[in-house]
Design a protein around this nucleic acid. Sequence first.
DNA 1: CAGAATTAGTAGGCTTGCTTAGTATTGACC
DNA 2: GGTCAATACTAAGCAAGCCTACTAATTCTG
Lengths: 148, 148
Amino acid sequence: MERRVGTVLAQVARLMRRAFDERAREIGVTRPQWQVLSVLLRHEGIKQGGLAEILEVEPITAGRMIDRMQDAGLVERRDDPADRRAWRLYLTGRGREIMDRLQPLARETSDQTLSGISEAETAALLGTLEKMLENLTGRPAGANSWDD
Amino acid sequence: MERRVGTVLAQVARLMRRAFDERAREIGVTRPQWQVLSVLLRHEGIKQGGLAEILEVEPITAGRMIDRMQDAGLVERRDDPADRRAWRLYLTGRGREIMDRLQPLARETSDQTLSGISEAETAALLGTLEKMLENLTGRPAGANSWDD
DNA sequence: CAGAATTAGTAGGCTTGCTTAGTATTGACC
DNA sequence: GGTCAATACTAAGCAAGCCTACTAATTCTG
């Protein structure tokens, strides 16, 4: 039985990504890229390693994404004055503009996905998912947080 | 608030895949490949298109996966006697053996992820996820089923 | 201060997903 | 029976994950 949790979870996650990307294609941004922009909005000047940690992704994955987003003019790499190995990441004006246009698309996607599901059920879902996240990362979910 | 559902969902899905792949690396099989084997076990002789539909994946994605799994000796393509465009897919002996070894790893992964979460909560999670799946695919979740 | 260990990021190469565009075969319709 | 649309699959090319292995800079330790 439990086998199905991973399967269904992966399926829903993939279909949500597809639904978002479909809407955002015209803007030329993918959902993972939107998530990067989202983090950068809250943590201007973060290093690549920090970004990777928040996203729970390997540093190389974050680095490659920043490569593409820099080419697209969405983000900017600046030297870290205190550490010559590191980059500091900043949103460009274009990146900021695009965030404004993506927000409603994200809303639409989650509205579509959660249609007919009550607030309470959604909250319960989120609660369970956060426990799972803790089990997988071995650290409290609040710590790797998105909204501090 | 709802924004976070997609994000957390994607994160949990990715970390579960990582946890499974870590365990299965020694066997040389990834989680998506395990899912293919799983479907084939229940639907011997299915065509690639049918496989893609069950997995909710594009046909080309399924095709490329079968390429690799055929190279690895896990599955076999046989001609469809009634349609020269199509392939019929079968597990090899090796594929079947490997399934036996993967089952416990899948179990471990979901046990780790769901540790401290009650049966009732897990069932509720699954129920919610299936509603979301319906919302995303536009068809009843039982239809694209895994276990008929 | 010198040398070792850690940290920040990159390079190459793989799988899994996608889109768009193509070929080959089948099936439906006049 | 011939044309034409639909179907089954493949090709090329991209994004986003991963792992292993590397360079360069920093920090720790003796």
